[in-house]
Design a protein around this nucleic acid. Sequence first.
DNA 1: GTCAACGTTTTTGTATACAAGAATTTGCTT
DNA 2: AAGCAAATTCTTGTATACAAAAACGTTGAC
Lengths: 215, 215
Amino acid sequence: MRRAQALRDALEQDIITGKFRPGDRLDEQSLAARFEVSRTPIREALMQLASTGLVELQPRRGAFVASLSFKDVVERFEVMAVLEGMCGALAARRITEPMQKELEKAHEDCVREASQENADAYYYANERFHHVIYKACQSAFLAEQAQQLHARLKPYRRLQLRARSRVANSLAEHQGIVDAIRAGDSDRAERLLREHILIQGERLADFIASFDRAA
Amino acid sequence: MRRAQALRDALEQDIITGKFRPGDRLDEQSLAARFEVSRTPIREALMQLASTGLVELQPRRGAFVASLSFKDVVERFEVMAVLEGMCGALAARRITEPMQKELEKAHEDCVREASQENADAYYYANERFHHVIYKACQSAFLAEQAQQLHARLKPYRRLQLRARSRVANSLAEHQGIVDAIRAGDSDRAERLLREHILIQGERLADFIASFDRAA
DNA sequence: GTCAACGTTTTTGTATACAAGAATTTGCTT
DNA sequence: AAGCAAATTCTTGTATACAAAAACGTTGAC
């Protein structure tokens, strides 16, 4: 693989996992030293991360880990809700039989992992469920956009898995979505998915609000 | 300004105006020679264009002007319709008084330019109208996404301005949109904007179909 | 004549060198 | 001592040099 690509992945992980915090400066020289490469592939990796919004590039001033304000995050959840709703609407009309099977299997995996009370495993099963919906819409562009924004919101989605009741509700919502898509009811699929995401945004808002109160 | 940035703009223009055609190879060396810079800023510009989808970067094989298939274009118009509908829905709820004035002025400009039958001037007035709607939604992220996709579809939107009747219809649709937003009717604003864009996609499809028949 | 394999050439990817702009420090003035 | 200014240092942006992979052409075998 190209070094720039490997570096991109490594840096992305470091940012998502919080090794680099929002606002941190990403100095080219120290990164180059740390990864034992020249600045060239480092710069390339930083530019790629900037295009996904994970890094902010200030001309002649350097790269910083992007820090999203509360408003920024809410705005992204709003768009995510609409995109995912659109995926659902299209999927309800266009889903293929094998894809429908895949969707139902992904949902069953979610149910199983949830019952095991393994937060990580549930998280990944949930990822796969949403990913199947993106694919099922049969629009490569929409799927790509949805996947990209979904990835960007990863750290924020993860925050709210703690709440037990949320998982149960989430599963019920998934079931409704699967049913709507199978029934070919695009309006209902769109609405349910939109709400499913918006609820996440709201829970996150609650979470942050309580966090702010504590501080 | 940074050279990479200037090059990005120059290349973008050359691609949009058709100086470089879809599928064309963008050789780093010849571009560097042509613009009298080194390969470094050229590569940077190409990477930026790749992130907007205007250029396709094949690892170790070079850069090519992206060529969108018919399906690719339709998919983008579909997403554009949804994003723009969302802008309208939010704008109907959140638009400020000065922004409302700006929107109405932009619409009036469209009407004036249309009556002058100057295709270019109408095109730019139309651009401004849509741009105001993006801003009016009060979501920086949504506005940015909409603007970016709008820009990507520029070459395809331009194709259909020839048709006289389309301009008249388009103006009528604009009027309806302005009214819906002023009335704070978010559902109607969303629906009208969505349809307004989808019609463009359909007209384009007709255009391409007739083009294919001719060939 | 076609195909394949080897060698050449061209092109991309990375490293290093250099230039130019930002940040910082030091020294001077008030 | 505080504030400003010049000079130094550090960092980014660009150019060039080198390495490695892909494209190309040539040559030879069948």
